[in-house]
Design a protein around this nucleic acid. Structure first.
Length: 568
RNA sequence: GCGCCCGUAGCUCAGCGGAUUAGAGCAUCAGACUUCGGAUCUGAGGGUCGGGGGUUCGAAUCCCUCCGGGCGCGCCA
């Protein structure tokens, strides 16, 4: 409906210009929205206000002119059009208009809301990319959810999405090395030697478990031989086990990747050197004190960055140059990296890299998310990965459940700090908004089941008069359902998945409200059919939204409250 | 010191491509079906949108500045 009204307004604009009533050059930006106060009608627009600015005219007069030029086809829909406030144009539509939206939704079904703005272009989303030196943290969970939902959203908007996990397994990585040395230390300890952890060692229990696994499968002699070789072996074992665990946990968290990209392959294949050559050719590098530098300040970075150390080893940045170049060479037009807020310094650097490589800096989006703070018994849980006292994603998943955890992570804007209270999440899980939305879906399914049980066949769309849907609660709900395509598009454009979480809650609320106001089953047959259609349409939209969130849409739920009351 | 993010109701947060009277959940208080699931609904109280300037006919929204909180600022990754 918003679109229809937008068309009317555009048509009025052209008509007014042709007749000389109004002068304008560029199409003004304006919005069509449902006003909060119902006295203002069903939809309103600020068009006259934005246009008045451009034309330096009185907004109310502009509004009058526009109304005069509204196309004839709009007359069968409009009840009345009014000018209000500074120059808003408010439309009140004829009773029954909302029924059309219900039909549109039911016809589109699972595809309702999808768009084609992606035009089949390719986008690569890199996310999680945890170091293979430990289990996934809760922060990785937030990262994973954001990337995953973004991928689902962009797919729905017509993009060809490729999901990738970048494994920081470069042999020059000190982290991995320390990790390997930690395992080795535990291994020797298992054999009875005193525990001698490296300085920056990893202390988690899982390190010991890996050492144990190596001892069980490789025997006591696993640490014999050339020390460098031994470290390399332990590195490989540790890395493999960690990656397997990460993949398993992510899969259970409903996150899967098209590809796990190994940093090491970039070093091994010579891709790193080649990409550095590209930078050199573009004149974006220089040598200083024996090291090779990227002149990133020339592209807006705060300082220049070392690409190759004086000792000849390439830095992490060098690998990232090669990696991002590789992403582009694989035909991706748009790149999205999902990173924790502690990497914010990374944005300017990577934009500089992209530009130095000859690509459009805006083609790379870095989605930063703020950190997650865990609370238990009202206390913030301090965590350190090396010390091994982290709460893992797996623990949270097991404690809180996948649906609730995903929903919780998607509840807040990614650039807002997220406090995750474990006790609240599990003890008062019925207060969790995820149940509110899921309950609406389950309730709808229950109504539809009942309808069949009572012998009311689910109505055919062609024979149903959806124009009977005129109750205020019905209109309210339908308006929201009609907004879904726009909400989805905005979530994609703004890279703001949480918008759909808010939307899901609003839609669920509107349905619960409708449910309380309007009986579906047992009312006059024509109206019942119309309401059954609306109920089905709502189910479809909730389902589509929950699918995008990767949260299940249950057809029934346990009646937990009732059970508790019986037992108490 | 420099950079990024945040500061909106008692608490947790939406809104921030300016626009008609600032929203939701939780908490508090008061109510609601002998038929569709009470994990629900209806209503009430509660806000100088951190402070101060500026732009604008109009600012929670844009700009500047200050204050408070978080996170960074390696030839680590």
């Amino acid at each position: 409906m918003k679109q229809t009204i937008t068309h009317w307004l555009e048509s009025a604009l052209y008509s007014a210009r042709e007749s000389g009533d109004l002068n304008w050059e560029t199409m003004p930006e304006f919005e069509v929205e449902a006003p909060r106060q119902k006295e203002f009608g069903d939809y309103g627009t600020n068009l006259a206000l934005t246009l008045a600015k451009q034309a330096r005219a009185n907004p109310r007069q502009v509004a009058e002119t526009l109304i005069r030029h509204l196309p004839a086809e709009s007359e069968s829909w409009r009840e009345k059009v009014e000018i209000a406030g500074a120059g808003f144009i408010n439309f009140t539509l004829k009773a029954g208009w909302a029924g059309e939206i219900v039909k549109t939704i039911l016809q589109a079904g699972i595809q309702y809301g999808q768009g084609s703005s992606g035009q089949n272009r390719r986008v690569l989303i890199e996310f999680v990319s945890a170091n293979p030196t430990g289990p996934l943290s809760v922060g990785h969970g937030r990262n994973g959810i954001l990337g995953d939902m973004m991928a689902r959203i962009l797919t729905a908007l017509g993009w060809q999405v490729y999901r990738e996990f970048y494994i920081n397994d470069g042999e020059n990585s000190t982290q991995i090395r320390n990790f390997a040395l930690s395992i080795l230390a535990q291994f020797k300890h298992l054999k009875g030697e005193p525990l001698q952890m490296p300085e920056e060692g990893y202390f988690g229990d899982y390190v010991m478990e890996i050492a144990q696994w190596i001892r069980d499968t490789q025997g006591d002699s696993a640490d014999e031989g050339d020390p460098e070789e031994v470290t390399r072996r332990f590195e490989e074992w540790g890395k493999q086990l960690m990656l397997e665990e990460q993949e398993r946990d992510l899969k259970e968290f409903r996150i899967e990747f098209d590809n796990w990209f190994s940093e090491q392959t970039l070093h091994a294949s010579g891709a790193v050197e080649r990409s550095l050559e590209v930078l050199k050719e573009k004149g974006a590098t220089y040598e200083h004190e024996g090291a090779l530098w990227l002149r990133s300040t020339a592209y807006g970075d705060d300082k220049d960055r070392v690409l190759v150390r004086a000792n000849g080893r390439p830095t992490y940045v060098a690998a990232d140059v090669a990696y991002h170049l590789d992403k582009y060479l694989r035909g991706n037009e748009i790149l999205i990296d999902v990173l924790g807020a502690d990497h914010h310094g990374y944005i300017k650097r990577m934009k500089a890299v992209v530009e130095a490589l000859g690509y459009e800096p805006d083609s790379l989006t870095i989605m930063l998310y703020q950190l997650v703070r865990l609370f238990r018994e009202g206390q913030m849980v301090r965590m350190s990965k090396r010390a091994g006292n982290i709460i893992t994603l797996r623990e949270v998943m097991d404690e809180v459940g996948v649906d609730a955890t995903r929903f919780f992570f998607l509840l807040r804007s990614h650039d807002s700090l997220l406090d995750f209270d474990l006790d609240l999440a599990k003890q008062q899980s019925d207060k969790n908004p995820v149940y509110y939305v899921q309950y609406a879906h389950a309730r709808i399914c229950s109504i539809l089941r009942q309808a069949v049980e009572r012998g009311f066949a689910l109505p055919a769309l062609e024979t149903t008069d959806t124009h009977l849907l005129q109750h205020e609660a019905e209109i309210q709900l339908i308006k929201l359902l009609g907004d879904f395509p726009e909400e989805l598009a905005l979530a994609g454009e703004q890279r703001a998945p949480h918008r759909l979480t808010i939307y899901a809650q609003n839609t669920a609320r509107a349905f619960h409200s409708f449910y309380a106001e309007c009986r579906v089953l047992g009312v006059e047959p024509a109206l019942m059919n119309a309401r059954l259609c609306l109920t089905q349409a709502t189910r479809q939209v909730l389902k589509n939204t929950l699918d995008l969130m990767g949260v299940t849409a249950p057809e029934e739920m346990e009646r937990r409250e009732a059970d508790e009351e019986l037992s108490s």
